[in-house]
């Protein structure tokens, strides 16, 4: 059997990104303007038909890719970077005596507590504080996703922390911060990086749900296109 090239898993993602980047240049209609009669069948000028208000579903699908990808990418990057940093901080310090140990153990408890807070509440609070916008939606999503990334990193750090090469680095005169980033991070980031794809996927799914929650929480009632949003449902299903 021939070995699959190492970049193969990225192909579907690359296609998505390509659609997001070039897509808006190719779409036939403005995704936020009425393009024709309501509830048209797919075919002719309207490849995917039109929805109940006469918006072109094909144009909206392509345009949606860009918004969804931007938010999901932002959420993934923020949640992963923050998760790695906080996970390192907790893992390296929670067993320590003194103030750093208190910070580590305190943060660890906060992460555990976050399990008790339903994601929806987090969303309501963030949107309530910062208003309904794509940015606050991203912040809310990142907040919901970050505890898992922290936990995944922390556990890995706890495994790596007692490895003898850390003592060797100390003998080489390295300070704790340098050791953390040079030796601990590269040896403990893997689970969080792998989980980043899950964060990405869940972000897209949650984005799609975000429009179904009461208006007060979701994005403002502009017809912004989003994959799977009710507005882009095919006519036959509504």
């Amino acid at each position: 059997m021939r070995r699959r090239p190492s970049w193969a898993p990225f192909v579907p993602f690359a296609i998505l990104v390509a659609v997001a980047v070039v897509g808006p240049l190719l779409i036939p209609f403005d995704p936020e303007r009425v393009a024709g009669p309501a509830s048209q069948r797919p075919g002719g000028a309207f490849l995917f038909g039109t929805d109940a208000t006469g918006l072109d579903v094909f144009s909206r699908t392509i345009a949606a890719a860009r918004i969804n990808l931007t938010i999901a990418l932002l959420v993934t990057v923020v949640a992963t970077v923050v998760g790695l940093l906080v996970g390192l901080l907790i893992g390296m310090n929670e067993a320590r005596r003194g103030p750093l140990g208190w910070v580590g153990r305190g943060l660890s408890r906060v992460v555990d507590l976050s399990d008790a807070v339903p994601a929806l509440i987090v969303g309501v609070v963030v949107v309530g504080l910062f208003g309904a916008s794509l940015v606050s939606l991203s912040v809310a999503l990142a907040l919901i996703m970050v505890p898992n990334q922290i936990r995944l990193t922390r556990v890995e750090v706890l495994k790596v922390r007692h490895d003898a090469y850390l003592d060797a680095a100390r003998m080489a005169g390295m300070g704790e911060a340098r050791i953390t980033f040079r030796h601990v991070l590269p040896n403990s980031c893997r689970p969080a990086l792998e989980n980043a794809s899950v964060v990405f996927g869940v972000s897209i799914i949650v984005l799609r749900r975000a429009l179904r929650v009461p208006r007060a929480i979701g994005t403002p009632p502009r017809p912004t296109p989003r994959v799977g949003a009710p507005g882009s449902r095919p006519a036959s299903r509504t």
Binding site: D167, A168, M171, P186
Partner: peptide
Amino acid sequence: FVAQDTSSSFDPR
């Protein structure tokens, strides 16, 4: 200081 050899005495990366 030289520690007892374990597989972890050098950073694998």
